[in-house]
Design a protein around this nucleic acid. Structure first.
Length: 483
RNA sequence: GGCGGCGUGGCGAAGUGGUAACGCAACGGUCUGCAAAACCGAUAUCCGUCGGUUCGAUUCCGACCGCCGCCUCCA
């Protein structure tokens, strides 16, 4: 089986063949850091982090680059409001960004380059574009001439004529064509700026990605990712810049774009004001719940958000965690695997099938929803197996089978970024909690032996009010914190 | 106006040219002192509407209806 992915450029699924055998170079557009990220911003983070994890699972070595736009108009304006300077404001929100992304289980990229630290390279590329005749200077600004680039519009599937008909933006008279865009913007008084051959100023929005991807990944790297709304104009312009600069050689081999998070079917965006920050959501939900929610729909489809969705994801995820906890409990006292105990039971088969289905799903353009189904199917097999033990003593074979199945479930879940942060076993945060719980459980068990149901139930009910769930399973008493 | 996407059981969501995964909810049963968890079982004659192609379409084609996105900063 080969990995297939949908390429926005060709509008079809293609077999993935990396530029360099065994290695994947990947660039994902990062945030403009002028405030906290919201759930919509988090989708590409989680989606492409999962893509990366799966590529690694498939044995590729992944070089993952995600930039920070730490200088632009929004940052400058925000800095003025907060009476600080642009770069320190950006630095602050880069910190905040990492707090959120880490919480969501998003691994750090191999490199996180910042625009402000690549000004010389940016100036170089702009000079090159001017030299090749693709850009022109007007009063300290530099513009890219879209008409000079024959392939303009190939990613977004539109022609310059169509767009001009629909354009309703104020046209800057100094531009040769209304669609021309800025590579370099001259600084107004008081604005942060860098010296350049065209006078003090700062880079336009699009040039940074061309420069950074080229710097860190080279020409024709493998995967370029981002949200749907970046297709035009950002990625279109990036192609125009990079390919003009490198004499027509493609920027990236595959372009991937994730769909939006919507609220009441409308795009979640800062301008509409219908957004939820990652920060506020994580105050209420386990990060893995958010992750599971994001991955329960295919990445290219829109994903509608409301609290009920997270509740549902939470319960679904709990099912998986309950299974892991059950295995854990059953395996208590099991001496460990012995050689030669593979493939002894139907459960081993089930594990293999689940892994195969998982891979097949992920190979098909990262179908995480289908991949998750494989997890649930395996969980049911495990539960059934445990259920059939009926509390009897565990044989070595049973132990081996369960241990193996559990390993598969964990391994596959981790590709989706699940089961990493929360302890699978419902356990406390320190030894004290565990010790106290053991004590409480033994007292309650005594009451149960004495058929003192009132006391037993009171303990369970009161613990419930404190957020601790107690279950009397055939494998013994189990407790966990709710959520 | 141009370009693109979506419409599957109560909800969410996969999917296939030969009659529909998975999760949540609800229902019946098993287990349990009772619960919870878990297991078993029945639930979509049907995949927006209308046509067409086909032996056969939810899946292909066309029209229509509805919703959404991009074309301007936006993940």
């Amino acid at each position: 089986m080969t990995l297939k992915l949908y390429n926005t450029l060709t509008k079809q699924k293609e077999s993935f063949k990396p530029r360099d055998a065994g290695k994947v170079s990947m660039y994902v557009c990062g945030p403009t850091t002028y405030n906290f990220i919201h759930l919509g911003n988090a989708r590409p983070l989680i989606v492409f982090d999962t893509v990366r994890r799966y590529l690694e699972y498939r044995g590729f070595e992944v070089n993952y680059v995600q930039n920070f736009t730490d200088i632009d108009d929004k940052i400058i304006n925000r800095a003025l409001e907060e009476k600080t300077d642009a770069l320190s404001l950006a630095a602050k929100y880069i910190e905040e960004y990492f707090r959120d992304s880490r919480a969501l289980g998003v691994r750090e990229a191999t490199v996180h380059p910042k625009v402000s630290e690549h000004i010389p390279e940016i100036i170089e590329m702009i000079k090159g574009l001017i030299a090749k005749g693709y850009a022109y200077v007007v009063e300290g600004d530099v513009y890219y001439s879209v008409k000079k680039f024959a392939g303009y519009g190939k990613l977004s599937g539109r022609s310059l004529d169509d767009m001009q008909a629909g354009a309703r933006v104020e046209v800057d008279e100094r531009k040769q064509d209304p669609m021309d865009f800025a590579l370099w913007k001259s600084a107004k008084p008081g604005e942060p700026s860098w010296n350049s051959p065209w006078g003090p100023g700062r880079p336009g929005w699009h040039i940074e990605c061309s420069v950074m991807s080229l710097t860190y990944l080279g020409e024709s790297f493998d995967i370029h990712g981002g949200g749907f709304d970046l297709i035009f104009p950002h990625h279109e312009n990036e192609i125009a810049q990079s390919e003009a600069y490198s004499d027509g050689r493609p920027v990236a081999r595959y372009w991937m774009h994730n769909g939006f998070i919507t609220v009441n079917q409308e795009k979640m965006s800062k301008s509409l004001g219908n957004f939820f920050t990652v920060r506020e959501i994580l105050a209420k939900y386990n990060p893995e719940v958010v992750r599971f929610f994001m991955l329960s729909t295919h990445y290219r489809s829109p994903l509608d958000f409301h609290d009920g969705k997270l509740e549902e994801s939470q319960k679904a995820l709990e099912r998986l965690k309950n299974t892991l906890a059950s295995v854990e409990a059953v395996l208590k006292g099991w001496p460990g695997p012995h050689p030669g105990q593979d493939d002894l039971t139907p459960l081993s088969q089930a594990g293999k099938e689940a892994a195969a289905r998982f891979q097949e799903a992920m190979d098909d353009d990262f179908n995480t929803a289908l991949a998750a189904a494989a997890l649930f199917e395996l969980a049911r097999e495990i539960n059934t197996y445990i259920s059939n033990l009926k509390g009897q003593a565990l044989s070595l074979e049973d132990g081996a089978a369960l241990d193996q199945a559990r390993g598969t479930l964990l391994r596959l879940g981790k590709v989706l970024g699940l089961f990493e942060q929360t302890q699978v076993i419902a356990a406390g945060d320190d030894g004290l909690t565990d010790g106290l719980m053991e004590l409480i459980i033994s007292i309650r068990q005594e009451a149960r032996v004495n058929k003192d149901w009132a006391t037993a139930d009171k303990i369970r009910d009161e613990l419930g009010k404190l957020g601790v769930v107690m279950e009397d399973t055939p494998q013994g008493v189990r407790w966990k914190r709710r959520n």
